[in-house]
Amino acid sequence: MTDQTLERTGTATGERSMGMPRHHLVIFAGLLMFFLVAPFFLYPVFLMKVLCFALFACAFNLLLGYGGLLSFGHAAYFGGAAYVSAHAAKAWGVTPELSVLLGTGSAALLGLVIGLLAIRRQGIYFAMVTLAFAQMVFFFALQAPFTGGEDGIQAVPRNMLFGIFDIAQDRVFYFFVLAIVFGGLLILYRIIHSPFGQVLKAIRENEPRSISLGYQVNRYKLAVFVMSAALAGTAGATKALVFQLASLTDVHWTMSGEVVLMALIGGMHTVFGPIVGAAVIVTMQNYFAGFGAWVTVLQGTIFVIAVLLFREGVLGVIGRWLKKPM
């Protein structure tokens, strides 16, 4: 997406501490403070949902905002990992951290297989190919013996952390989720601001030129695809433990659409934008849950408005005002 790439690396602003521009450090610290205090005022399960979708949206945006690749099938990794993590916790009694790791690993593997095929096409074909493969995963989830068909995997237990600590209570489990999501966000931040991330941006801006500079473009694309899928899987696996449920909703194409919307309204070319987008969409779903299909209409309307008038997203606009990339 070469439209108005305002975003520049933090190096231009000069002020840096702990390897990142100072205002990014402030944002990270502010977010952490907020989420440490928030469960005492807000419903923890709602907050955990926001956290999981924030990680999902950021992982997705690594691919879209920095790799320039629009995947319309990220529900496959999110939902696939949710099923693996739920099955591992329920059928094998695996500890939560292992469930999440298994989910992440399986999403990475799925991302590798689909990515190998999908990167053979560009642009809108890439979007259609990823969508079609995600639909294949959906049919697999519908028919496979261990996924429970229409019911999904219900009543997933929250086992002992490391086999010792009891974290089943929502308020305690919240901090487990917070640790995972912040770990994931820091990893994503590191990837974006690494030399690897710089090459990705170069490929996004001008692929033929990157090839002529000697970069193995397809390897970079595949690598970022797998990373994005893996972290989307982390989010899905965690979400399965939060709601103690893995269902067809997680692998449906509407989920792929939702994560695109989160990245779009938050700001595709920003690091923190998808977090804002996820918070907005999850809150909206929460408060409008009683209105049935009107939520779909509202989401569609936001999509249309965002594409027509608001392509930079919330944090894209704020970043432009403050002259600091978000």
Partner: peptide, 8 residues
């Protein structure tokens, strides 16, 4: 987005 609106 349009598809979502029409379907909804």
């Amino acid at each position: 987005g349009l598809a979502l609106i029409i379907q909804g």
